[in-house]
Amino acid sequence: MIKHFNGGPPTQYSHTVLVYLIGVISSLLFAINNRLRNVEKEKIQSELSFLKAQINPHFLFNTLNSIYALAIKKDDKTADAVVQLSELMRYIITNANDDVIALDKELNYIDNFIQLQKTRLGNTVKIKYELDGIVYGKCITPLILISFIENAFKHGVNPNQDSEININITILEDFLTLFVSNNKVDSVQSQSGIGLQNTIDRLNHLYPKNHELLIDDSQNKYTVTLKINIGC
Rank of each mutant, 00 (worst) to 15 (best):
L103S: 08
K52Y: 05
I55M: 09
L206P: 07
Q54R: 08
Q12R: 14
G156R: 01
S181A: 02
G23F: 12
I144H: 13
D201M: 08
K105S: 06
G8V: 06
D111F: 15
K41V: 09
L85P: 01
I55E: 10
A96S: 12
F179H: 02
L107A: 00
G137R: 04
V39W: 05
Q197L: 13
F61W: 07
L48C: 08
N123Q: 08
L36P: 04
V100R: 15
V83K: 14
K209C: 07
L88N: 08
K209V: 14
F61N: 10
A69D: 07
G195L: 01
E42V: 10
M1A: 09
L178Q: 01
S66I: 01
L214H: 15
C232T: 02
H211F: 08
N229Y: 15
D75V: 03
T78P: 09
I228M: 07
R37T: 11
A102H: 12
N56C: 04
E106F: 02
V82F: 09
G23W: 10
T225P: 03
G122K: 10
G195A: 13
D216N: 11
D98H: 14
Y91R: 05
N183A: 01
Q197C: 03
K41F: 13
L51G: 02
Q161C: 04
N166I: 08
I144P: 04
I169G: 02
D217K: 14
T141V: 04
S86Y: 05
K126P: 01
L36C: 02
A69T: 14
P57Q: 06
N33C: 09
V39G: 01
N210T: 12
L203N: 12
Q191D: 15
A71I: 09
E212Y: 15
Y136K: 15
Q219K: 14
I2Y: 12
E47T: 08
R202H: 06
N151E: 13
E106V: 00
L18P: 00
L213W: 08
T199Q: 03
D132E: 15
K227G: 06
F153L: 03
A79P: 07
R202M: 15
A96C: 03
I194Y: 06
F179M: 03
N158M: 03
K184F: 02
Y109F: 13
G231I: 11
L64A: 09
K77L: 07
D75H: 13
G156L: 02
F30C: 07
K118P: 01
N65A: 05
Y68F: 12
L18W: 14
V188R: 14
F61D: 10
N65P: 00
P142F: 11
T11I: 05
Q219G: 10
E164Y: 07
I22V: 10
S187R: 04
I55C: 07
I32T: 05
G122S: 10
N38R: 11
L214K: 14
L172F: 11
F5I: 11
V188N: 12
T199N: 13
S46E: 12
K43A: 15
F61V: 13
S14I: 09
T223E: 04
R35A: 11
N183E: 03
A31N: 07
D111N: 15
T223P: 00
S26K: 12
D104L: 04
G7T: 05
